[in-house]
Each structure stands twice: as C-alpha cells, then as structure tokens.
Design a protein around this nucleic acid. Sequence first.
DNA 1: TTGTAGGCGTTATCAT
DNA 2: ATGATAACGCCTACAA
Lengths: 351, 351
Amino acid sequence: MAVEQRTRRPGIADVARAAGVSKTAVSFAFNRPERLRPETATRIREVAETLGYRPHPVARMLSRRQTQTVGILTPQALSVIFSNPFFGAFSEGAALAAEESGYGLHFVSPMHGSLSRAIGRAIVDGFVVIGLSADHPEVEEVHRSGLPVVLVDSTGLSGYASVEVDDEGGARAAAEHLLELGHRDLLILGVGSPELASPIDPGSVMGRRLAGYRAAIAQAGGSAVASLVVGPATIEGGLAAVSGAWREGRRPTGILAMSDAMAIGTLQAARNLGLSVPRDLSLVGFDDIDMARYTDPPLTTVHQPIRRKGEEAVRLLLSLVADGGSARTERRLLETRLIVRGSTAPRRPAS
Amino acid sequence: MAVEQRTRRPGIADVARAAGVSKTAVSFAFNRPERLRPETATRIREVAETLGYRPHPVARMLSRRQTQTVGILTPQALSVIFSNPFFGAFSEGAALAAEESGYGLHFVSPMHGSLSRAIGRAIVDGFVVIGLSADHPEVEEVHRSGLPVVLVDSTGLSGYASVEVDDEGGARAAAEHLLELGHRDLLILGVGSPELASPIDPGSVMGRRLAGYRAAIAQAGGSAVASLVVGPATIEGGLAAVSGAWREGRRPTGILAMSDAMAIGTLQAARNLGLSVPRDLSLVGFDDIDMARYTDPPLTTVHQPIRRKGEEAVRLLLSLVADGGSARTERRLLETRLIVRGSTAPRRPAS
DNA sequence: TTGTAGGCGTTATCAT
DNA sequence: ATGATAACGCCTACAA
C-alpha cells in the first residue's frame, strides 16, 4: 500500500530543526523536562512523535558512559543452558533484581569458543559470573579493566565480591539423613566428566558437595561405604549413571545425587529396574528445583535458594556499579537445608 | 597489595601513541589485520595487550551502526519467564542460531510495565517477537522504525515475517486420539485468565488449539461433550483446575491440556484424587517439553518443535538483517504431531 | 602501508 | 529558559 519510506532514521538534529529549537532543548525534553517551559517540552515531544524520533540508545550510552544492563557470564554455550531449570531459576532472580532497578540483563557466553571475545563485545556495566572459577584469566581481565564483578558459586577467591551457598553443609545433611535411616551402602552421583583422572575439582561446587558427603560418611565410622559415579547433570546423565552402576553389580540402598536432574533420572532408572523408591531405594537430590515436589514420589532434596542467589548477585553488583568501582569485596553466604519429602525411607531389614 | 590504578580506561589514541602509529593503524590491527604489515599488526596488538586496551564496544557500534545482537521481545516480565521450560527450549534454539552467526541474544520485556520504553533502550539489530499479537502498537512502532521483526506464534498478521506452528492440527489430533479410545466426556484445560468474559482469544495460540479440539469433537457427533476450565499454564494451574473441576462434580474420563505443565499438574491432581492415569483417566498434553517423557506415566502429548522454532525465527531475522530491511515478509509453518506415550488408554467399559 | 579528518547521535558544560 | 560547542571512542573514506 503505502510506499515504504526507507529514509534515514531521524536524529536529534532533525527534531531540533523541525521544532525550531536547539538540540539541547530536545535532549532536555526527553531527559529533564522540568528544565523546559512545559509548553515547549510538550511541543518538542509532539514534533518528535510525528517524526518518529527515538533517542538512539547506543549514542546515549556512549555519552552517558553507562549501559543500564548487567551481564551474566557463563562458561557454557547459551544454547545448552536455557533449559537447565537451575539456570532458569537463577535467571529469574537476577532478572527480578535487575528489572526493579531499571536494568536489563545480557547473557554472555563463549562466542565461537572464545569467552574473552564475547566479553569484549558485551555492552554491560558489570558482570555476574556464574560457574566459573575466578582464576579463569578472562575474569581477571575483566576485573582489572575496572568493570565490577560478582562471583557466584566460585570458590571464594579473595579480592572479589561473591555470593556463595553452603554446599558442603547441605551435602553433609543429605548424607547424614541417609545414614540415620540405616543405609550403609551408598552411591554418590557426581557431576563431572568421567574422562578426567580426578573428575571432580575439589574447589568447585561439586567438590564441596562431595566433601560434605564424605565428611558425614567418615563420621559414621567404617560401617558405611560409598562409591562415586559421575556424569552430566541431566536426567539422562542420572539415568545412565545408575543403570550403569547396576549393570556393574552395585546394589546400594541409598543414592546421593548432586543435582535434582540426576535424581529424576535415577527415579526413571529405578522404574526401569523394577525398583520402588523409597521402598527399595532411598534417594536424595540437590538444589530443590521446582520440579522436585512434583516427581513421583516427591523428591527428598537439599534446598538452596536459587532465585535469591540470582537476586543477591545482581543487587550486590548494582551496588558496586553505583559505587563506581570494583573496590569493595563483599561476600554473601546463603543457607542450604534438607527437605525431606517422599523419596527416602528407612532401610528395609530384609535384604 | 598493589595500588589499584583507578586510571581512565585506555583508548585507541593511547595505544597509537605508545606504539608510535596512527589510530587508523590500531583500528586496522583489530579489524583488518590483513591491511597491515604482519609485524606491525602484532606489535600493535602487543602494545594494546600491555596497556589493557579493548575496543570500546559501544563506540564501535555507534560507528558501525550495527550491534551484532538480536532481541527477543516478550510481553511477560523476565522474572517470570525463565523457569518456563517452553521458553527455555525456545531460547536454546534461538541462542544456537544466534551464536553460530556470532550474534548475541538480548531479552527485552516490559520494564517498569512499559514495553515501549524497554524497546527504546534495547541495543539490537532486530526483534524476534514471541507471544505478542502483531496488533500490539509497540510491534508496529518497531517495525515502522525500520528494525526487522519476526513474529512467532502470532496470528499471522500480514506484512510481517513469521514463524508459526500448526496448533490447530495438533489439537485436533489430540482430541481425535481420545475420541478413538472411546472417551466421550472430555475436559479441556485451557490457558487463560478466568476473569475475562471470553477467557481465550480466538486469534491466539490457545485459541487455535481450542478450535482444533472443538473441531474434532464436533466431527464426532453429539455423543461427545467437552467442557472448558482455564488457568495459568503452570503445574499449579493444572492442579488447581482439575481439583476444582472434580470438586464441582465433573467426572470426565479424558483430559485435553493445552500445555504440558498443566498436564503435569493434572497428574499430580489425579494422584491426590486416588485416580490412576491412564486406567481411570486419559490425559493428553501439549508442547512435548523435555520433561514429558519422564513423568509417571510418560505423557502422551502433542509435539511441537520448540527449539527449531527458536532457530528458525532467529535465522529468518538474521536474513532480514542482512538484507538491510524489513521488507521481506516470509512465513514459515512448522508441524506438530501427536506422540502417544503412557498417559492415554481406552476408556474402561465399567463406569 | 600509514596518516588525516570527519562522522556516528547523544549528553554535558558553560554561556547567554 | 535556551543555545553553542565540546566531548564520548571508534571507524573509515580519502589522501599521502
């Protein structure tokens, strides 16, 4: 119908000309209306409206030297992260905190394999770094360049602000729960890649969880044993790990899964094996994702405040941004707690 | 330890000076190394490295007039969207397509309630609009301003590029399946808000699904009846809707849920009610989210290619961006198909 | 191969 | 209450 006007986007100068005022006035009309006579302001806005003018956000950023967005830095490709319910909940919290301060969220992940390239392109006022140990050179680089950084779930390297969670305590509580129910033969489902010699980095989240499990087991004396199998933190990963263990002849009565996704996979494996949870097999997950209360049976798991973690991280970052520096190095520790639902029961006396 | 050098971020000029070359040379060293003598290029980069210089992305965008990021526009707050598994899968696909072209992803949602404000701030080369009907004034505004737009799941308004899915056909298949199994008393679980007089907009995704259900039921003749209850597309929503229907005395033998989340809620409700699925109650979901195959029983549902939807949308958008205009108006239609798993069975003859 | 200069579209400073 | 002008930091013809 109408001929498409493929003309250049109107700029502040066009508006100024059309309204017969200076560029300054136009800028004021949008950013500081109170400094203009009301009628002038409205007139300018009307002209702008007719012309279809909108302040160019990039130009605005350049001159204001701030972007109003926070970056979420993750070592994994976006294309693999979004259907991870843990990450979803974390993002929810982050988005909540960002939105309430008028900030946007920008997810940054390795682009063509290079995290630092992605970082360089990112238009953000600071980074929340999740799941990346601070000794990654990229993080140091960012930090040194003056951008505020908040570390989440990273082994508390000093010199950084961070948000952490008591993974070890939670894991210990999980193991103690199973032990108290009389289970002595335990299987730990770890997150990691089986190829590595030491598949779980002691400084990582999973390392801390493992330490918690082991501490509890050690405390129980020699009567309890636990073995470890690892796989990806997914339903399939848990399913495969448990099926594999059974194939190899392992017959634990209690399973400690380092993630709820793996626990759900375990539920599936148990069904395939004809085992009833919790009658034949007790199972404790980790994270307490939303789904955990809706599995059959509902999952006993270690709760961690995932959403709040996202919130706190962004709030902390925003406070650093406001301070105008990455100077402060605050550390927030959040709690975990065991939530007993239906996937655990006393060990049956009969073998 | 070391005194924090809170000095101004180095600019291209600093590098040029330090390396004894012009700003142009520095720029080339980063953007067109081939136009410099190799040794010059590397030397410049080294100097840049020592100085900690990185091209300022905002300035770069301003002069290049492109952002290398695509916007995902949604009417819901980010803080409510990220733990929606449907959205997660969609984002996964979108991220995949974006990443392979070196583009980033930026999620844009109403900020402080105003979508258009958020749009104005967004630094993107184009928008994928999901779950928003095209007659929203915001979308038109964007489109008119010359930014490429791709509509997803919107009633195919002409003049826009779009990616759609055969919701009606999928819904029809779902209903026919139940009908063929002998079910005659059906309950439809719709997504919508009960307050509205007409809780489901016929032009929306859910409207198309409803139409599909109804078409199949109508074709079955007068013997089959279906009633509709609506609620939010969540587990809780499905749970509440079904519980409510039972409380009101409804006793359908087949349930058509417009989303898998609601279907999972139904599973939960059935457990609470002491009903066995599929023995006492047959259930068909919609979407085929990842979780659907792991519920107990595995969910019979209508599959739609969620990830591919994200991929296609971004690819289409990127091709528009490359064309340098929003001129083209291509429409891609994706298939749905019924996947029969374990939540449906023939109606039991005994009441 | 390298340098000069103008432009990208705003905002901020300082006058008037 | 307004306006002129200089940043902001980079890219890129065009010239040398």
